[in-house]
Structure formats: structure tokens, C-alpha cells
Simulated scan of single mutants.
Amino acid sequence: MAAAAVMRLQTVVSREIAMTDNAVVSVGSLQAGSSANIIPNEAVLQLNIRTFNDRVREQVLSSIRRIVNGEATTSGAPKPPEITTLPGEFPLTVNDEDATRKVEEALRQRLGAERVGPTGPASASEDFSVIPRAWGDVPSVYWAVGGTDPQKYAEAERTGSLNKLPSNHSPEFAPVINPTLRTGIEAMLAAAGVWLTPAGAKP
């Protein structure tokens, strides 16, 4: 039943989400049984869901519930499955447009235009969005600071292998402490300066 559910869950994105939308449904963990000759009496599936749109997120969650309940019914499960949302499920992070323009300009002035650029949507699990929502949806900006060795990055860019550079979820991830730490601090101070500096003064 668990295996059938996993296979069917892989069709949510490919068969139910419009090609103009984006979504990720991953079964990262399936735990069941303790021995090859004993049929397990339960299975625990843990899923990771990522979307760029709250509407798509609700659609994906609805599909997951339908599929898991349907597989349980088809398999003759003695009781309905338990479906819970884990604490790590966070709302969508959306940068305020005006605040983003101010921060971007401040970063360009401080770090140089060649070192600042848009990244586009990213399907990351991030709890930053909880903060501005807790304060009544105050304007907020979330950005990332690169930490890859410049020579390694340049080589990966030259060979078209940027996607092979270890990310923060990789066991091989090892950011260059210097100048990454300094750049991060400079970026935060420059961004804060936009709101702390009197109008007309240079931050």
C-alpha cells in the first residue's frame, strides 16, 4: 500500500499541475517493517512539498490527501491513514517590490553592480516568511549571499556545470568563510542603512 501510494504521488506534478505552475512533491522517507519475513503493520511516509503559489500548494495538498486515502481504501486498510502537516511547513516567501528595489540599489552601491543580481524564484524551504506575517505583513526582503570559491565557480560556469556545485543541503557543502562572512555583514548593514539613513544622505 505504501509503495503504491509513493508511485501514485509521483503523478501529482506531472498530471495535475499546469505546465505554467511549479511544484515539487518528494517522498523523502518511507519507513516500514523490521524484518524480511514479517509483514509490517504500519508505514510512515514523509513528504516535502514546494510551490511558488499558495493556490498550487493547496491543490497539491488536496491531491496528496485524495491519493493516500484512495490507496488505503483500495488496499482494504482497516482504518483511514493519519495525515499531518509537520512544523517545517512554511508559507510562501514573497519579497516586497519597493523594498527589494531599495535593498538592491543599496547592495549595488556597496558591493558593486557586477556582484548583485536577481536569482529568480527558488524552491527552498524557508521560515523567513513567518516573521513579516507575524508583524502584519510588513515589507520584507529575502536575499542570498554566495559562498562558493570564486575560482571553482568560474570553472563550473565555464564548463556548464554550475548545477553540480554543492548546495547548502549537500554533505560536500563548504562555503568560503572569508570573504563570505564579510560580504554578508556588509550586505545586511547596507540594506539596513536604507531605512536608518536620513532622506538625502548617502548610506
Rank of each mutant, 00 (worst) to 15 (best):
L61Y: 05
V94C: 13
L107T: 06
V94W: 06
R158D: 07
D127K: 00
G120C: 00
V24L: 12
G112K: 03
A106G: 01
A201S: 02
D149G: 04
T93Q: 12
N22E: 09
A199E: 04
A5L: 03
S167H: 05
A106Y: 05
V103Y: 00
Q151A: 05
K152W: 03
L107C: 07
V60K: 05
R101V: 13
G117S: 08
V24A: 07
A122Y: 12
S167I: 10
P198M: 04
V60Q: 14
A72Q: 00
A5P: 11
G160K: 02
D127Y: 02
T20M: 14
A18T: 08
Y142N: 15
P175S: 12
P198D: 05
G147M: 08
E157M: 10
P166M: 08
A4W: 14
A72T: 11
L9A: 01
T159M: 06
N22F: 12
F90E: 01
F90I: 14
M19R: 12
A77Y: 09
A36R: 11
S125I: 09
T85Q: 13
G160L: 00
D98H: 06
P80N: 07
S63D: 10
A113P: 00
E105I: 12
W135D: 05
P132E: 10
P40V: 01
A99H: 06
L107Q: 08
G120T: 03
S26P: 13
A77F: 13
A32S: 04
G160I: 13
I83M: 09
A122T: 10
R158E: 00
N22T: 09
V141R: 06
I49T: 11
A187V: 11
I185D: 10
S75K: 10
P118H: 04
P171E: 01
E105F: 07
R57Q: 15
E155D: 06
M7R: 15
T148H: 07
R50A: 09
G147L: 10
N163Q: 09
T93V: 14
T119H: 01
M19I: 05
S34C: 14
N95T: 13
